[in-house]
């Protein structure tokens, strides 16, 4: 029974969420700060406060909406000794890029879930799993309008630990001390391109509230 429970806990964490709901093709608020409109329907899940949208499955492609306050980390780690990079409100977009890369690197250690299933390691060790930190590459940082706000975007790519190529786009703005960020990523072969146009349409549709 104990094993069954720990397995279910792990599965919940793997999926990042308990279940997916439908996102119809219409305007939708993201938190209380801005809204976006999609031309296609998505499946949505909630990963601890981060909305994740996907069509084919989050292992294949995913669009994530992140909002950070000054001092927040991009991830949270159960490892008390881990020193995770923090977002600071004074950051320039160049520094946001450094923060993004450093955050990915700091959680990509990953632990094999074999140990986890045997109850040897805390479940959080699995979460940032399969990113090969050393292969993260960022290109093309440039200004971009985030609705009516000045913003930025950049392209990134990395390999999973198994060597599968993945790429992504980050698009965001720093507004009133908060980082508003949308991150789209997918496998370089097929799944990133499959819905890239739909994601670009979402990016162009941003309306900042208030």
């Amino acid at each position: 029974m104990k094993r069954m429970t720990s397995i279910l806990i792990v599965l919940v964490l793997i999926g990042g969420c308990t279940h997916y709901t439908a996102v119809p093709a219409q305007r939708r608020a993201i938190g209380s700060l801005y809204s976006v409109k999609s031309n296609v329907a998505w499946s949505q899940a909630d990963e601890g406060g981060i909305q994740v949208w996907t069509i084919d499955g989050p292992l294949l492609q995913a669009l994530r909406f992140v909002t950070l306050n000054d001092g927040d980390t991009l991830f949270r780690s159960y490892d008390k000794d881990a020193k995770l990079p923090r977002f600071r409100a004074h950051m320039t977009p160049n520094e946001v890029v450094e923060f993004f890369v450093a955050s990915l690197k700091s959680v990509s250690g990953g632990v094999d879930t074999h140990q986890l299933a045997k109850g040897m390691v805390h479940p959080a060790g699995i979460r940032a799993g399969s990113i090969n930190a050393a292969t993260i590459d960022v290109k093309n940082l440039r200004p971009a309008d985030f609705g009516r706000l000045p913003g930025f975007r950049f392209d990134f790519s990395f390999l999973s630990k198994e060597g599968l190529e993945r790429q992504g786009i980050a698009f965001g703005s720093i507004h009133e001390g908060k980082l508003l960020l949308m991150v789209y990523s997918g496998t370089r072969e097929y799944y990133f391109d499959k819905h890239k146009q739909d994601v670009e349409a979402i990016f162009s549709s941003v309306e900042v509230m208030k």
Binding site: S108, H122, G125, N132, A134
Partner: peptide, 18 residues
């Protein structure tokens, strides 16, 4: 084996526990 894989130079950034 899982640690051998993790430590095999593929971007290993060890947590303290690891």
């Amino acid at each position: 084996f899982s640690l051998a894989t993790a430590a095999a130079g593929v971007g290993f950034v060890g947590s303290l526990a690891q």
